[in-house]
Amino acid sequence: MISASKTVAVLGAGTMGSGIATVATRAGHRTLLYDLTEDQVERGLATVRAFLDKSVQLGRLSAEQGTAASAGISGTTDLKDLSGSDVVIEAVYEDLAVKKALFGELDEIVSETALFQTNTSTLSVTAIASGSRRPERVVGTHYCNPAPLMKLVEVADGPYTADWAHSATEEYLRSVGKTVVVTKDRPGFIVNRFLIPWENSCIRALEAGLGTKESIDAAVTGALGHPMGPFRLLDIVGLDIHQQVATRLYEQLREPRFFPPPMVERMVAAGDLGRKTGRGFYTYDDTRLFGS
């Protein structure tokens, strides 16, 4: 582990960024968490350390591992501090211009052989890679939320991604304990590509009166063995996030089944975004997600 230890920079200290940073430092990589303001960085680091402490409490990590992982991560608001990175993982918000600009700036700072990974969920890896003068080093790595708990990472190359970058990415993801599936740079990769139309058709079935939210959830869990029904899942994901992802996929694919049904727009307009607001398809007293 030590000999293979790398220096990993994570750009963006939000939910996904801090999760991905947790994954990196937990596996023994020297990890740097970057964001625009001290505040954002501190909040991100606190999230990482809280997760690690909880893992120690639950016995998933030994006390030494927890201490080492907490000590192995630091934060910065200065891109120049990332100069020694072997792996740069971009997890900022879904804005193409911002993502491209970051990779362009980092071209000047990191070594020629540093790997660039982008955690985009709805943008094109190809488009993001065009922000770097060396698009051959850019690979799409889409983590699932919460990143420290979900084993899956979807890996998608752009047309210019080099073989060395792809294999180094797979090797890195294995070093942090992830299961890799290889897909193409297409909207939604695998999971969202199939999940979004599925969720939309469940919402349309509800709109059409084919069942109630309870009966559809019960039918899906009972007959298909899914861990939760579509409406419980949408409440956890957030109706606003579903709307955003679905709309972005629709804009690229122009297939109506990706477009969020009217019910979603009404719920978002009403502020009924799911668990995080206390009301979505169901109502909640406890708005915390994942028991954190």
């Binding site: 599936v181 199939f194 599925w198």
Partner: peptide, 30 residues
Amino acid sequence: PYLNDVIQGYDDELATAEDIDTALKLGLGY
């Protein structure tokens, strides 16, 4: 429609059959 969608995605070489199944099992807990 979901199964048809997956069959078409597989035929369109989105990923191997194994990786499509793995992604949906690990990503969604199926």
